[in-house]
Computed example of a mutant assay.
Amino acid sequence: MTAAVPVAGHRFIIVGGASLVGSATAAELLDAGAAEVVLFDNFSMGSDAAIAHLKDNPRLRLVRGDVMRLPDLLRAMEGCDGALLLAAYMTLNMNTDPWGGLDVNVRGVQNALEAARANKVRKVVFASSNAVYGYGPGVKGDLVEDTPFHSVGAPPAAILYGATKIIGEQLCRDAKRRFGQDYVVLRYSTVYGERQHYRAANALYIIETWDKVKRGERPQVFGDGSETKHFVYVGDLARANRMAFESPATDVAVNTSGPKPVTTLELVRMVTKLAGSDVEPEFVGDTPGKVRLTSGGAFRIAHEEAFAAIGWKPEVDMEEGLARLMRWIDGNEARAA
């Protein structure tokens, strides 16, 4: 039996669905003809605003539930053909509540996989992260799928987050070995785009820069601006999630990154230009107590394996993706006013 799950005519659940990636993927699946998309969320981090544009779709069903309660997941997954596992604490949340993060990112994944097994869900797509490669001076060069984990010199919250994603991947592998559960792991880069949330340290930097420039202030660049960042546009990622279900691939983990890396200085200059300003950035040192994710220098998150496994590659470059995000922010600020 093939591991491919065609989207058209089938039912899917997105665990952690009231989110940036969840809402974009729900729209992608509905547009591709899914019979039903279930958004499962406890709304501790997700928001009604993130899914407001989908609520009138008769093939969308919203279920309030918690990954820490297995019965919630068991009921919600009944009749589903595919499950996208998004629910997680990210680094900033892990910094404030590491115990809660370990619970959700480990036991929550265990619960979701058990619910998938019990309901005979055909395929699971697990949202992992390039955090499985770690942070700090050891992270450099091409980061390919067998690159080891680096932890020296990085904030504990970042390492805890990366370690939980490694555990989540291994729980998927274990479910495949024990029960034959088909799965694909996608290692997301930092996601940005319309309906941007404020929980990812690097994505937050985009918004902070935009807000400063709009207020007429100089944007801040940490260090000399050469620090490498990796982003992926949310629409590209929604497409990757769909293609992971539709592909015959199983028992694989692949990177889903944007077309190319960007330095902090390049990013700030792009945002400043899009804001219609030519103000020069202010170069500053680190703020004590602020969690920032740093690398040791230039690196590239290689996404060639994703094309080999599921036929995916990124299409939206950083400047175009930022322009879409800024148009969305401007439109929503205007409506809010």
Rank of each mutant, 00 (worst) to 15 (best):
Y192E: 07
P259G: 12
M68L: 14
V268S: 11
G168S: 03
F149E: 09
A3R: 00
V254N: 05
F12V: 03
V63A: 06
F283K: 01
K120S: 15
H150W: 09
A50F: 11
L86D: 04
A34P: 02
A200Q: 13
D251H: 03
D41S: 04
V316M: 15
R239M: 06
T25S: 07
D142G: 01
A116P: 10
I167S: 10
V7L: 05
V271N: 02
P155E: 10
G289D: 14
E280N: 09
T264E: 15
T256Q: 05
R199P: 00
L92M: 09
N255L: 00
A244S: 08
N95K: 00
P71H: 10
E315V: 05
L265R: 14
V185D: 13
D251F: 04
P314R: 01
Y205T: 02
A157Q: 05
I207K: 09
V284N: 13
M77Q: 14
V291S: 12
S23D: 06
A253N: 10
R195D: 11
A334I: 01
S128E: 08
G289Q: 11
D317W: 06
D142A: 14
P137F: 02
R117K: 11
D48M: 11
D81W: 01
G141N: 04
G153P: 13
W99M: 08
S44D: 08
G9V: 01
M90W: 00
R218G: 04
T96P: 06
R177W: 10
A201K: 01
L102I: 00
G108Q: 13
V38A: 01
V316F: 13
S19V: 03
R69D: 13
V279A: 09
I51F: 07
V5C: 07
D174H: 13
P137M: 00
E36P: 07
Q110M: 15
R75F: 11
A306L: 08
T190C: 03
A127M: 09
A115G: 08
R117L: 08
L20N: 06
V185R: 11
P148Y: 08
A131D: 04
F43C: 02
V284Q: 00
A158H: 03
M45T: 15
Q196L: 05
G79I: 03
R199C: 12
I167E: 11
D224P: 12
G235Y: 08
P6L: 02
R61F: 01
G235E: 13
K273D: 15
T190G: 04
Q170K: 14
T25I: 09
A244L: 05
V234R: 00
A298H: 14
V5L: 11
N95E: 13
L322P: 07
E282A: 06
Y135I: 04
P156D: 06
P98R: 07
S247V: 03
F12K: 01
L267N: 10
G22L: 06
A24P: 04
L60Y: 02
V191T: 06
E78D: 12
V185Y: 14
I301C: 14
G285C: 04
V284F: 11
Q196H: 09
Q196S: 07
D278T: 08
W99D: 15
G33E: 03
H53Y: 08
G225K: 07
D278P: 02
G100T: 10
F43T: 10
L186F: 03
V124S: 12
P155T: 04
H303S: 15
L267A: 05
G285N: 12
W312K: 04
